[in-house]
Nucleic acid binder design. Structure first.
Length: 307
DNA sequence: GTTAGTCAAGGCAAT
DNA sequence: ATTGCCTTGACTAAC
């Protein structure tokens, strides 16, 4: 059984999240800034609620919440706590509904801070801003009921072992809410499944297996081996493993491989994934919910009759 | 109304 | 030591 996950937004549904830029806010007074930000956060909390309500009809069981739900929340100048926003109360109420709806509809929520969160950075300022960003992600997680905050390790700085040692130290100092929610994902530049497994096992952190990254940056593990090893790391969390799937934009012979295609080539779905009882698979494709629908249809069509 | 350029943040490879 | 690239899609400003 597969739970299908949508990342951050729809392509064709009439639901859009809003955002803003510091370069725009910079020109306003603080009062105006807060009014603008408040409106965006309120609208986004409403849109999240409507999104969750829409997912079952699209046969989608998981959703990744955009890091930009509260734009510039941790910005050194424009940043804000929710209680400073004129619509703070309404936003909290909308999130209470989101939690209830997600629970009622069994929608699995996750967060994926982007490249700027680097817990292994040797630069103090980068670590500090990364921790601030994670505190924000924890706020989002607690508000929405998300149980997963998925990270890349980030840079290697020419010494992966030293960087991973720094991670272990930083992890030990994180608030419990973050320790309970953090997951680590293999990337396409530095850290493979093979690199991450020792950390994940030692600290009991689930490993989010991205098969596309694994194909771009292989290690000594086969796809079935990596899938199996990653799945093992989820057992202590008592929820099905979370994997990522995407197809390269310019086909496997083209360059660059990294960027995501509009849809998923069914050939890129690892056949060994059918062997798992239950998996959650985020579909990272530009055509969003249309890509999920198309893949579901193709796979149902291909499915072999039961023996 | 349409569209092109822009956007807080890091790291890395190329120069 | 410095620059451009990676990559997202909505926003803004200019037309």
């Amino acid at each position: 059984m597969i739970d299908w996950g949508l990342c951050c937004l729809f392509l064709n549904e009439d639901l859009k999240f809003r955002t803003t830029r510091y370069s725009f806010l910079q020109k306003k007074s603080r009062l105006e800034q807060l009014a603008i930000l408040s409106g965006i956060c309120r609208d986004n909390s409403q849109t999240l609620l409507q999104t969750l309500q829409r997912l079952p009809a699209l046969n989608i069981q998981a959703f990744r919440i955009s890091s930009e739900l509260f734009p510039l929340y941790t910005h050194p100048d424009a940043g804000y706590p929710l209680h400073q926003l004129p619509d703070g109360e309404e936003i909290l109420q909308n999130f209470a509904e989101c939690r209830a709806v997600a629970k009622r509809l069994s929608i699995r929520l996750s967060l994926h801070p982007d490249q700027f969160v680097v817990l292994v950075s040797p630069h103090e300022a980068v670590l500090k801003s990364s921790l601030a960003e994670l505190e924000y992600q924890l706020v989002l997680a607690e508000l929405s009921g998300a149980e997963e905050i998925n990270l890349h390790l980030g840079g290697s700085y020419g010494d992966k072992a030293a960087a991973m040692a720094r991670f272990e130290k930083v992890f030990a100092g994180l608030p419990e809410g973050l320790q309970q929610r953090l997951t680590l994902e293999n990337d396409d530049v530095s850290y493979t499944v093979s690199d991450l497994l020792p950390i994940c096992r030692h600290l009991q952190i689930p490993l989010v297996y991205d098969v596309h990254h694994h194909r771009c940056l292989p290690d000594e593990l086969t796809i079935p081996e990596a899938s199996q090893a990653a799945a093992e790391t989820w057992k202590s969390r008592k929820i099905p493993p979370h994997f990522h799937l995407s197809s390269p934009k310019n086909s496997w012979s083209g360059t660059p491989l990294r960027s995501h295609a509009d849809y998923i080539d069914p050939e890129d779905f690892p056949s060994c994934w059918h062997d798992f009882d239950r998996l959650c698979i985020d579909v990272e494709a530009k055509a969003k919910e249309l890509a999920i629908a198309k893949l579901q249809k193709k796979m149902a069509h291909q499915a072999k009759p039961a023996k």
